[in-house]
Design a protein around this nucleic acid. Structure first.
Lengths: 243, 243
DNA sequence: ACGATTTTGTGAATGCCTTCACAAGGGCGT
DNA sequence: ACGCCCTTGTGAAGGCATTCACAAAATCGT
């Protein structure tokens, strides 16, 4: 049972009902948020298929591998255009490329990592970022003891130099792993420096202007959601207690 | 989960003498998945308010602090019963307690952590778990070099002992931070051992029986979603390239 | 060349979630 | 006590997202 609706993450983009005809032509139909989230999954499966030498794949089997039903997958892909062949399926290489393009993964992107605690270090060492075109171009922290040290070829800078660092490396995406108390402040500075996308691991709601996207990863909340479902399965102890 | 048991969907309105008191106490209305995810956020805000000594809070200000609109918040809370006072607001302590109860957070829960790489270590050291009633009761890894060492008072066991460890500590929730290739195998073993809720950090789709809940945290996917929105903001370079 | 077979792409139907808008309820001042 | 003001709780409406189900391609075998 896969309990994961839209859950915690929300992107606040007001993509807008006000698209011009030119925009329409250039952009195709607006891609639903739920579809974007799944494209990333399809992409991973496609890359894996490509590595095994698979040339084409049907919506049925691609959907199975991605854990969704095939109608949904086909509808998702239809937002990208018509890239399948009836009676055959999708060309793995072509579709991979098309999704990469749609997600804007063709250029590699400079990412700043703010906060080098346990989690920050773990993320710095996570191959999944680099291998998908996200290059950690800057690491910032507030602790003078680690500023100046080098991690994965990147020198740790002080968070007070945030504006310069962001400008130098042309950074648009930041990953925030600072303590809760510092999160909104760091966030404000990032926004002021021109960052437009933030992945927030601090367990707090960040307030940002409308043009900035925030996605939140909230580990404790994830466990609490599991706890909710779990307590409903086993005996309903909570109900016995409560009125 | 979305089991949707009895047909109590159409809740009798305030005046309606519909369900018996016993029914109310046992079942309540089914809580939408989207609401459950937000309860965790409300809870965090409420706890913070409680610490500042705030006694009551209106839906308007609680909603603002949680980053949602007030109608949504009120509807969410209405699934838990009627705990507000018109003209006044919600009692912070009462509501905190009620959400804790709903999420099944009154008992503390034993969690197993499988995989002690960078991310696993970071999670082991994360206070947010322990402080919310999730006790890391077991740590497992496949590397003989670290099996036997102690982390945060817990001795690392070999992943082959998974079944015994789960049984000993009565574990229902597992956090999986093993490499992709090992994830499905570990998952299968967890399920066989009786674990019913899994938080998966490995970037792969886990296949599980219907009675098991899986939630996935996919860091690379999060960045890709940000990338999508980002590339639509800045100049639309991808569209210029692509057809 | 053509029908059988496969699989896509998509209108239509359905269902879930959010938002609106307001009646009902509760406290407070006079 | 009474009326005013505030805020909840919730029907109803509106929007998205998912699922259904089938016509429209495209291949393959004969």
């Amino acid at each position: 049972m896969i309990v994961q609706p839209e859950g915690l993450n929300e992107v606040g983009t007001a993509a807008g009902p006000s698209a011009t005809a030119a925009d329409q032509a250039l952009e195709r139909r607006a891609i639903p948020e739920a579809t974007v989230a799944r494209l990333a999954i399809y992409l991973r499966v496609l890359v894996a298929l490509g590595e095994t030498g698979t040339g084409t794949v049907s919506s049925e089997s691609l959907a199975a591998a991605a854990g969704v039903n095939s109608a949904k997958l086909r509808k998702d892909l239809s937002y990208l255009g018509s890239y399948g062949v009836r009676g055959v399926g999708y060309d793995v290489a072509v579709l991979t490329e098309r999704i990469n393009q749609t997600l804007g993964l063709q250029q590699d992107r400079a990412v700043a990592l703010i906060g080098l605690g346990h989690l920050g270090r773990a993320l710095a060492g996570y191959d999944g970022f680099a291998s998908r075109g996200f290059r950690i171009a800057a690491i910032l922290d507030a602790d003078p003891a680690i500023v100046g040290s080098t991690l994965r070829g990147v020198t740790v800078r002080h968070v007070d130099a945030l504006a310069e660092v962001v400008a130098e490396a042309d950074i648009a995406i930041a990953v925030v792993t600072v303590p809760v108390d510092a999160a909104q402040d760091v966030c404000d500075r990032l926004v002021a420096a021109g960052v437009t996308s933030i992945l927030n691991f601090a367990p707090t709601v960040l307030t940002v202007p409308a043009h900035v996207d925030v996605r939140k990863v909230d580990l404790a909340a994830e466990l609490q959601i599991l706890s909710f479902h779990d307590s409903r399965k086993s005996g309903r102890a909570d109900v016995a207690v409560g009125r």
